[in-house]
Computed example of a mutant assay.
Amino acid sequence: MTVELLLARLRAAGFEAESVRAAPGGVVALAGMATLRDGSRVFAKTLRSAGSDLFEIEAAGLRALRELGGVTTPEVLAVTPDLLVLEPLPPRREDDERFWEELALALAGLHAATAGERFGWHRDGWLGRLRQDNTWDDDGHAWFARRRILRWLTEPLVAAALDREDRAALERLCAALPDLLPPAPPVLTHGDLWRENILCGPTGAPALIDPAVSYSFAEADLSMLWCSPRPPAAQRFFEVYAAPAPLPSGWQERMPLYHLRELLSSIAHDDNARECAEAVREIVAPF
């Protein structure tokens, strides 16, 4: 795909776009910052072909985070099966300790304000190019095992990367989740909370993009930031998050268990698959 396609679809949707500067990264859509005739800018994404509900679900997730959890998200300017147009947001304040503390408070507020009764979501979503199974379940441990870990074992690249012993160990780990993860209520989670999905809002406060929302364990959101690289300025993030309501003891040891979902998804998307498979084996080794 080229920026010309994105430019054409913006114009077809009524945006007087004059140019588009492609955004780096992205494995699903072509994205870029578009400059309009009046000098204003919008951020837009498009797909090669129409017919997907990906952008509709992304827009709904942004709305849920904002309306239910009070989180700053970009305003959705337009959404169609092949186009998503958002207000442009500046980069995160990477080296600003206060920024990461504000993010911690915002995430704690999201989780505290949205406790529910069931795990899942009212519709399935997307994680990268692949479907996210959000079928409702009253049992969080069974739901996390089935919908967030074992769900990936049938993906071709995961089946190729993990042998029979690896898969059996994952199944034994999932059976033991009631003993490994303390009971916790389902809360609205962003679902893909790594640093590249964190930007600044119009006022400079942290803003979240590219969600994969569901009602899940709060610690599942934390695991994305704990298990992926973060700047030195974020060193107090977890301390600040836990200030309003301390995390159950042993939370650091649980982070890799929640992160299995992300590792298996990365294998399924052929993203650092070899390294992720080794990380999975290390986590399941005791099982």
Rank of each mutant, 00 (worst) to 15 (best):
L89Q: 00
P90Y: 06
P91L: 10
P91E: 08
P91M: 07
P91N: 14
R92A: 15
R92H: 15
R93Q: 12
D95R: 15
D96G: 01
E97L: 00
E97W: 00
E97A: 10
E97R: 03
R98E: 09
R98A: 13
F99P: 01
F99W: 03
W100K: 01
W100C: 03
E101P: 05
E101C: 14
E102S: 14
L103N: 10
L105E: 06
L107R: 12
A108E: 10
G109W: 08
L110S: 04
A113P: 15
T114Q: 11
T114D: 12
G116M: 02
E117F: 02
W121K: 11
W121M: 09
W121Q: 11
H122Q: 04
H122G: 07
H122M: 08
H122A: 08
R123A: 15
D124E: 15
D124L: 08
G125L: 07
G125A: 05
G125W: 00
G128I: 02
G128W: 03
R131V: 13
Q132V: 13
T135W: 10
W136N: 01
W136L: 05
W136F: 04
W136E: 03
D138K: 08
D139R: 07
D139T: 09
H141I: 08
H141W: 15
A142I: 01
A142C: 09
A142M: 05
A142E: 13
A145D: 02
R146S: 13
R146A: 15
R147W: 07
I149K: 00
L150M: 05
R151I: 14
W152A: 11
T154W: 10
T154N: 09
L157R: 09
L157T: 09
